[in-house]
Write a protein that binds this DNA or RNA. Structure first.
Lengths: 203, 203
DNA sequence: CGCTTTAGAATACGACTGTATCTCAAAGAG
DNA sequence: CTCTTTGAGATACAGTCGTATTCTAAAGCG
């Protein structure tokens, strides 16, 4: 066997470049050639790792989903429940350059999925994973009553806020206060005796 | 002046065809030629009414926004506040074929707007209109406390639910119960003030 | 009536698309 | 070493893209 290479690592390298491209220039600037250029490869090289563009997009969508799940898993579990939930949600919002890139990619894929069954299946799986993690967390934090419904509401709220932050970055700060206000409403009483996390000053 | 035609009506005809195309096949199936075919015109005819594709997209985005605002304005204002709010939100969710088409177009434009300032400005204006209408309605319904924050939360929640409904139609029913649960949480107590003032017409 | 302006279709153009095929250097196996 | 398989780049091809230009037919106005 001649010269060989870690194929999966190469795929991730290309997938990462694709996600960067989606976040910076939008999904319809993604072509085999632009992705290759962003990855520092030739178009022919990209073709060695993805036989079709659709396969490449599906891979990148899964990669983006894994990233969100991994980052959510990394949230400090020792935080007070309310802050922990806020931290979980912040991992999905475009609060800095890196998260903005991922949020832009996630939402672009989500809209694309409305007309592409393969991407839709990936999105649903990512949603299911996040929903389960959130539900489990809510139950362990004492919000077992309608945990799964609250989890879905939180997911929808986060997606909606992220979407708007992308095209209205000037409302960024305001939307974070909206998030806090909505969380206060959705999670009525912190069961822990911890001092209530300072709600944002409304006004 | 020779043969003339209602230019604005022609533009709306083409814009309507564009929105249909976006909802049925996605924004990246939109080209001057496909829009022309969907409108029953030739590509050359479309060019007479929109000098560039970007101008055509901007027009369609405004058209879609106007439709939502108009439909929200048409919600029966005599309904009990809680049902009225639910009805307002349902005008933006893909609950039937027509609304699904509009929701798909709205979300496609929203994501597109993340990288196209002109579309972003249109989206922000539509958001501002809806937000103001919702806020006014909430205040008149006795939820004046944090009306504008609640309005933004409701908008984000609706967008997030609509997005997910598009690629997960099988979760449709479930997501409607999530909506009701979230509304219960966001609008805590039925407004006590007895003389329920007729909510203003929206828009 | 002819003249002129318009609607609308057809065509032209260069650029870009996804994908298939070809070339060539490099590196492990014998 | 040679042989052979792979990575990676280059090129080819048919199709579509947005847009500019050209054409035909029709209709209002003198």
């Amino acid at each position: 066997m001649p010269r060989t290479v870690d194929r999966e690592e190469q795929r991730r390298h290309i997938g990462t470049a694709l996600l960067r491209l989606v976040s910076e220039r939008g999904l319809d600037e993604v072509s085999v050639r632009t992705v290759a250029a962003a990855a520092g490869r030739s178009a022919g090289a990209v073709q060695k790792y993805f036989r079709t563009k659709e396969e490449m997009l599906a891979f990148a969508a899964e990669l983006a989903g894994e990233r969100v799940e991994r980052r959510m898993a990394g949230v400090d579990a020792s935080l007070p429940p309310r802050q922990a939930l806020r931290a979980l949600i912040l991992t999905t919002l475009p609060v800095d350059a890196e998260r903005r890139a991922e949020a832009a990619a996630q939402l672009a894929f989500a809209v694309h999925a409305a007309h592409h069954p393969r991407l839709a299946a990936i999105r649903r799986q990512v949603d299911a994973d996040i929903r389960q993690a959130l539900t489990a967390w809510l139950e362990s934090a004492g919000h077992g009553a309608h945990a799964s419904a609250v989890a879905d509401a939180v997911i929808a709220l986060s997606d909606g806020l992220a979407l708007r932050m992308l095209y209205a970055p000037q409302e960024h700060e305001h939307l974070l206060t909206v998030l806090d206000h909505a969380l206060d409403a959705l999670l009525p009483d912190p069961p822990a005796p911890a001092p209530a996390p300072a709600p944002p000053t409304m006004g």
